[in-house]
Design a protein around this nucleic acid. Structure first.
Lengths: 152, 152
DNA sequence: CTTGAAAAGAACTGCCT
DNA sequence: AGGCAGTTCTTTTCAAG
């Protein structure tokens, strides 16, 4: 287990605010030199805590104005393997996220579509035809807020 | 509306695979020079399609081994404003995401905790005491896959 | 930990096709 | 649009305190 000190946590909080700032700029806000800051970032990366950065794409600007969360129950549990379902669902480009969960549903999917008619097409021709799919429940996204979450 | 050509889409797909690659390396795979690639990235950013990068933090390595999705119905709709609920829920550090949705639930929350006892503490002392909260349904995350989603 | 420096590479600018 | 050449900035590594 990697022990984080207060500087590491401040560093991660600052990077969560702006993932693209340079090690020099980060060090200035932390009271560290550029090499010291850079070494801490490297350490957090090799410890597996910091796993790089991911693109922030604006689905709306790309023409995908509808985001829907689907709760999926598998109908024929045991007859169709989870792997079959996951492989089939991963081939649907409109699916942004596949979450295997425990509880009222077996899977939660995040699906984007251009508009509601487009979403109906995805739902009827792609989702409802997935192997083993049973009950499906939908929630349309109105707005969302992402937060950094707890650090250490 | 910004019109994307095939190069822009290939560029976004490549960046979705590796958000940290340089404009030069990207250009080599696209058959473009470094400045041309860089100018396309700039254009996508100022068009609002590319909204920078965000940190990929490993919650597991930070000691947060439990992720739970909560579906929340507001009990006293109209009596407590959505703003009150959102303000209160945003103050809980364990909440990583707040999604306002339409359907069976009013809000979907992504919550992380160190372990199940820690999650019970968050649920009882933080979530169930939110203003206006009604029925709450939980799904524990087993595994998840993130995909780039459709581009253009 | 720091400062300073050096080399490599990436980002950015201007000009030309 | 795209390429080339050049400048600036950052990253990455080193030596020394």
């Amino acid at each position: 287990m990697t022990e984080l000190d207060e500087l590491d946590r401040a560093l991660l909080r600052a990077l969560a605010r702006d993932a693209m700032q340079s090690a020099g700029a980060l060090g200035r806000t932390l009271g560290l030199s550029q090499p010291a800051t850079w070494r801490r970032i490297r350490k957090l990366e090799s410890a597996g805590i910091l796993r790089g950065r991911r693109l922030r794409l604006n689905a709306e600007a790309l023409g995908f104005g509808v985001t829907v969360f689907l709760g999926v129950k598998l109908a024929t549990k045991g007859r169709v393997s989870l792997e079959d379902f996951e492989r089939a669902v991963s081939a649907i480009p409109e699916v942004q996220r596949v979450e295997h969960v425990l509880g009222m549903y077996d899977y939660r999917l995040r699906v984007v579509a251009r508009d509601l008619p487009d979403f109906e097409r995805v739902l009827r021709r792609r989702i409802m035809t997935l192997p083993g799919v049973g009950e499906v429940e939908a929630n349309v996204l109105l707005s969302e807020e992402r937060r950094a979450g707890p650090i250490g």
